[in-house]
Design a protein around this nucleic acid. Structure first.
Length: 1166
RNA sequence: GCCCGGGUGGCGAAAUGGUAUACGCACAACACUUAAAAUGUUGCGCCGCAAGGCUUGCGAGUUCGAGUCUCGCCCCGGGCACCA
């Protein structure tokens, strides 16, 4: 009977389904469960790709193996069914996304089932079904309630032509991928998940990073996640801003407001911060704060506080009114007046405040203006007590500076208000990982968006130029600012300077868009000598470059005196000009010692001419300095050289000959650069070789390695690592950790996704207006799901199609019952896929996203298999969501067990991680080695492969192609080899030995004949190898081993039924249809899946005889076969007798003999 | 530019520091056949008639012994991209 895959495969697939062979029971002992997960597919219109079954086969083999090993295995499949392609298809064809998606799912289901995978189909999930997305919405609400979901304005990619927001992936070279229109940046209100936030068990970025160590994931994936999180450890250092207001000592008087005191709101913090900077601060408690009167409070201040020309008077809220009155009555002029949230009248809306009648609301603005050197008015855009108009009113009458801002809490009521501190003592905080280079910070750069830029507006002399630059930067898209910004640009803020806290130097402040507002503090100290970007910028704008860390060669030797030297690198073509010192037989760079107080450049030019004779020369560039420590052998002197290197150019060949003293000693030579590098890389000139490369490079003297400190005052001579913390300590820097990771933007202005369950109510907003309240309400959980409407026009018109569906849009406010509107954005599909693996455990639960007990039974996932393209996004998001759910108490992890594990081993796995072990599958390329695509016409259709060769062949071939994680081309010829193998398996019954017929029921024969023993040994090798390879996911070599076994049986020509049965058990996970068919042909009624995995007998694996390789001096000369238990002497005896070997031994003496048991013997001879 | 992978026959690939090229494809010969296909058996890295020599991207190093470890370089694939 020929091997007919079609009938066989259909037959067994039906039987598995009928018997529910792969339904996972929820009742299982914790150590007997395995959760084996595939990344669920997006059911695209193109149908299953040959790439899908690769990972699915791997997990299927593993799952089937584990079941045979006695595990209860959860192995589910579902559909990541929301997403853009279905919607785009709807726009094009008019077919509703639900319809096309359902059709695609049908196709996918049929195709996946035709491969005979052992999924538990009773647990199928579909993210686009309301039963599912109800819980996606529920998840959103949980995060929202705990402050992990929030809304803010964010720049998005906007295509004006398509009238839609685009994902970054849809922006190709700055243009819309569909219409090629230019994409612009637009600020829209967007929802975010706070992945940068913290939960019950700590900060998410920190946990996402540190947990990685304990996960059994491919190292490249972990690296990618680490890079994505981008943790850097550094310090925050503050640079004071020096402007005309601040030249010498000043005193501060801080006045609190209505109902407050000096311990309220930000006052203690502010006082402390100002005092830290070395100023005197008075912050009085004003009398009767609950029922204040002007007479009492102003009188108190005037009576108890001394004002002079150094005083800066600050008032908050009603304190500002007090301050104004004080200023009005002052006899001496004060330095300045700063008002935050200041009252200009006691009216709030229509109502009067309690202090309405106890203050006089007429101000003598002219008098106040005269008594204060400068005036600053801070006005909060979100202020409910003092409207922004009041700030404007004050500004109109007082002049000075109006700073419109958004404070931390409305009306400046937070514990810390940096804006106020900056208005009093302006400063720039920077984040740096290199505090050791502080003395080399020769300028500052702020991001164009930095708040301080606006705050300093009045001090900035070239404001119009600065403003122009800010606007230009804002107009650039993210892409332009990164991709296209090859050349750095910037503008200096003229009229303001920063003070370098290291050396007290005044340095210029610039704005430039190479500094990102979203990272660190949005400001940097620029150290051009030790940072490429700063170097490039400094070169372009001619800013000073100061080296503070130089590379050190060797350790300082005893009695070595420091000596300054200057040397020249002169390059012509690929030759370097050197002088050869004949006396000491050494190549040197022209140049020499700089005497005390001597100008290094003058020294160099003089020495250069003396040593080379060239006198028409000039110094092109300073390349940097290094420290060299060595013993100068000819004189036995310990040298400690500080070597400055310059690039020198010879202008013409004019040469006056060497100086008398050097004539006999030196010889001028032009040497290949490569050779010169060799000369210097060793000996006393070590280190100078680097400058030969540097002199040609883009970054000249820029050096970012470690070394020894120079130009850094009291820190000179320290190692830079040591200087890091010493300098930080000196300037009061704070340790800080920064991440590249940003919050997750989940809003999509799209239809085919889960609606965000939020309702906006105007009435509630009006009621709360002015108090900083929000008009958004979460949809009550009992009202979930918020169902997608079907009466929708998908054509993109600049907002979510949902916004145009009235039936969807209109809703009653859950709080006040009046007319309200729904949020019309939907969620990113990554939200759907960030928790699907939890739903599989309890897919039909109507009350919970999944029952706690079910989660506890199955999670975490033991093995997760999918493409490396999800290395960052999906895997990061899913980990975050799982962690958050753990923190919120929805996932009860096996704390006890894990705690015990932790106690026992450091390698315990964290209990807030969903995927313990991850394996990647590689891409399957077209037969031409290119990525499969319709346009290339190299797509392999899995349906056709199954039709022609069968599912078992396809499964086996995909495993045989190569390592799972590698990209590999589909070989249309190659698959026939696998098919041939299965044909040979099919025919193997013809070798069956009749005496082992099952009906006979005979006991096993005591003695195997030789042939049977040989088959037995091969079989046990197979069992071991295949089992090991499945566990380690080396499926390709497992398939090879099957072939080796079958080849052996064909050669031996005999196999017993028992051996055949064992073979089929091992084959079953790989090719389950044919294995079951042959199993039943051997007379078995039950499914092969119910059998247990055979054990191998290690003692059977030992061969009777072993072949040793015989080497002479490490070269293989022959091989000898000896009994397996032969010892070293025996092997040596046989080997030396071997004719081929003897040839190499005669007349030689064996000095050494290396013996590797079972492998080789090596004779080392002389 | 930076960070990961990876370079082994004509091709897909295999090799705890221990006989490089297992297994498969392609190719060749033979058997079966009137013939072809299928199947089975055998051969198959390169140079050489042979003895023998050479061979894991290139160059050095460690070692009795290197595809495997170390350093430098070249090429291919992937990720990140002004992250201070």
């Amino acid at each position: 009977m020929p091997y007919n895959h079609k009938t066989i495969e259909k037959k067994w697939q039906e039987r598995w389904a009928k018997e529910g062979a792969f339904v996972a029971a929820d009742k299982v002992k914790p150590n007997k469960k395995k959760y084996i997960l595939d990344m669920f597919p997006y059911p695209s219109g193109a149908g299953l790709h040959v790439g899908h079954p690769e990972g699915y086969t791997a997990t299927d083999i593993y799952s089937r193996y584990l079941r045979m090993k006695g595990y209860q295995v959860l192995h589910p499949m579902g559909w990541d069914a929301f997403g853009l392609p279905a919607e785009n298809y709807a726009i094009k064809s008019g077919v509703h996304p639900k319809e096309s998606t359902d059709n695609n799912i049908k196709t996918f289901t049929r195709q996946i089932k035709s491969l005979g995978f052992s999924y538990d189909w009773t647990r199928e999930v579909n993210t686009s079904s309301p039963d599912y997305y109800k819980w996606t919405q529920w998840l959103f609400l949980q995060l929202y309630k705990h402050g992990l979901a929030y809304k803010k304005a964010a720049p998005v990619n906007w295509c004006a032509d398509c009238q839609t927001v685009l994902a970054n992936e849809q922006v190709v070279a700055g243009a819309c991928e569909r219409c090629h229109n230019k994409v612009v940046q637009k600020n829209l209100e967007q929802w975010f998940f706070k992945i940068t936030g913290s939960g019950k068990h700590g900060s998410y970025p920190e946990r996402l990073l540190s947990n990685l160590e304990k996960l059994d994931w491919p190292e490249p994936i972990k690296t990618m996640q680490r890079n994505w999180i981008g943790r850097s450890e550094g310090v925050e250092i503050e640079f004071r801003v020096q402007s005309s207001e601040f030249r010498d000592k000043v005193d501060f008087v801080l006045l609190h407001g209505f109902n407050g005191d000096s311990q309220g709101v930000f006052f203690p913090w502010l006082k402390g911060e100002i005092e830290k900077r070395g100023f005197k601060v008075v912050a009085p408690d004003l009398p009767n704060p609950e029922q204040p009167t002007e007479e009492e409070q102003v009188g108190y201040v005037l009576k108890n506080i001394q004002f002079d020309e150094n005083t800066i008077l600050f008032g908050h809220s009603l304190g500002a009114a007090v301050a104004l009155k004080v200023a009005e009555k002052l006899k001496t002029k004060i330095r300045g007046l700063v008002l935050a949230g200041g009252f200009s009248s006691p009216k709030f809306k229509d109502k009067s405040r309690p202090f309405h009648n106890t203050f006089n609301w007429e101000f003598d603005f002219e008098k106040i203006k005269k008594s204060a050197g400068f005036i600053k008015i801070l006005s909060d855009r979100n202020d409910y007590a003092v409207r922004i108009e009041q700030g404007k009113f004050l500004h109109e009458n007082l002049g000075g500076e109006l700073i419109e801002t958004e404070s931390q809490e409305p009306h400046f009521t937070a514990n810390q208000e940096p804006v106020i501190l900056n208005s009093l003592v302006p400063s720039i905080k920077v984040f740096t990982t290199r505090p050791d280079t502080l003395f080399g910070a020769t300028y500052m750069v702020l991001a164009p968006e930095h708040a301080l830029v606006r705050e300093l507006k009045n001090q900035i002399e070239n404001w119009s130029e600065v403003e122009k630059y800010i606007k230009k930067a804002a107009a650039k898209t993210q892409l332009e600012r990164t991709d296209l910004a090859k050349e750095k640009t910037g503008v200096e803020l003229k009229g303001v300077k920063a003070i370098n806290p290291g050396n007290g130097e005044e340095v210029p402040i610039w704005i430039a868009d190479y500094v990102l507002s979203s990272y660190g503090t949005g400001a940097i100290m620029a150290v051009p000598a030790h940072d490429e970007r700063d170097f490039e910028f400094a070169k372009k704008y001619n800013l000073p470059i100061r080296e503070v860390v130089i590379k050190k060669y060797g350790e300082v030797l005893p009695n070595a005196m420091p000596r300054d030297v200057a040397h020249a690198i002169t390059i012509k073509g690929d030759k370097v000009l050197l002088v050869f010192n004949k006396k000491i037989n050494e190549y040197q760079l022209p140049g020499g010692r700089i005497e005390a107080k001597e100008n290094p450049e003058a020294t160099l030019l003089r020495e250069f001419t003396e040593e080379t004779g060239y006198d028409h020369i000039h110094i092109e560039e300073y390349l940097g300095q290094i420290e060299q420590n060595y013993n100068f052998a000819p004189e036995n002197v310990n040298n400690h050289r500080l070597c400055k290197v310059y690039k020198v150019k010879i202008l013409d060949d004019h040469n006056i000959g060497l100086a008398e003293s050097d004539k006999d000693k030196l010889e001028v030579v032009w040497v290949d650069a490569a050779e010169a590098i060799q000369h210097f890389a060793r000996g006393s000139w070590k280190g100078t070789e680097e400058f030969i490369t540097r002199s040609g490079g883009k970054y000249g003297l820029c050096y970012f390695g470690n070394g020894v400190m120079i130009n850094s005052g009291e820190f000179n001579g320290l190692s830079n690592e040591e200087a890091k913390w010493k300098i930080t300590k000196k300037v009061g820097g704070q340790k800080a950790i920064q991440y590249k990771l940003r919050d997750w933007l989940i809003s999509r202005q799209r239809y085919w996704g889960a609606p965000i369950p939020i309702i906006y109510c105007d009435k509630c907003a009006r009621l709360r207006q002015g108090f900083g309240g929000q008009s958004e309400h979460p949809v009550p959980e009992e009202d979930l799901p918020v169902v997608l409407p079907t009466d929708v026009d998908f054509r993109p018109k600049g907002e979510s199609p949902l916004a145009r569906s009235k039936s969807f849009h209109k809703v009653k406010c859950p709080k006040c019952g009046s007319a309200a509107r729904r949020e019309s954005d939907t969620m990113d599909t990554f939200v759907d896929s960030s928790w699907y693996f939890l739903r599989y455990t309890d897919p039909k639960n109507k009350k919970e996203f999944a029952g706690k007990d079910k989660i506890k039974t199955w999670l975490p996932v033991d093995t997760y298999v999918g493409g490396a393209e999800h290395a960052v996004l999906h895997l990061m998001y899913a980990r975050f969501i799982y962690m958050a759910l753990c923190d919120l108490g929805f996932i009860e992890t096996k704390i006890k067990r894990v705690a015990l594990q932790k106690a026992l081993s450091k390698n315990s796995t964290p209990n807030d991680e969903p995927f313990l072990s991850l394996r990647n599958q590689g891409l399957i390329l077209g037969p031409d080695g290119q990525k499969m695509s319709k346009s290339r016409g190299n797509v392999i259709n899995p349906d056709e492969v199954i039709e022609q060769f069968g599912a078992d062949t396809m499964r086996l071939y995909e495993m045989f192609m190569g390592p799972l994680e590698d990209a590999k081309p589909w070989d249309t010829n190659g698959i026939v080899g696998v098919r041939r193998f299965l044909e040979r398996v099919w025919e193997m019954g013809k070798f069956q030995v009749s005496s082992f017929q099952p009906k006979a029921g005979q006991p096993l024969a005591d003695k195997f004949q030789d042939k049977k023993r040989e088959v037995n040994r091969e079989l046990h090798k197979l069992i071991k190898k295949v089992g090991d390879d499945i566990v380690s996911f080396n499926f390709n070599t497992a398939v090879s081993q099957f072939m080796i076994f079958v080849n052996a049986v064909y050669k031996i020509g005999e196999i017993s039924q028992e051996h055949l049965e064992l073979f089929l058990k091992v084959l079953n996970p790989f090719a389950p249809h044919i294995a079951n068919e042959l199993w039943s042909k051997l007379g078995h009624k039950g499914l092969l899946e119910k059998e247990t995995w055979p054990k191998y007998n290690a003692s059977l694996l030992v061969e009777d005889e072993v072949t040793y390789a015989v080497q002479v001096n490490g070269k293989v000369r022959s091989s000898v076969t000896v009994a397996a238990d032969a010892d070293e002497d025996e092997v040596a005896r046989v080997a030396t007798k071997n004719a081929k070997v003897a040839k190499y031994l005669t007349g030689k003496k064996i000095t050494k003999q290396i013996f590797v048991p079972g492998r080789l013997i090596n004779f080392v001879v002389k």
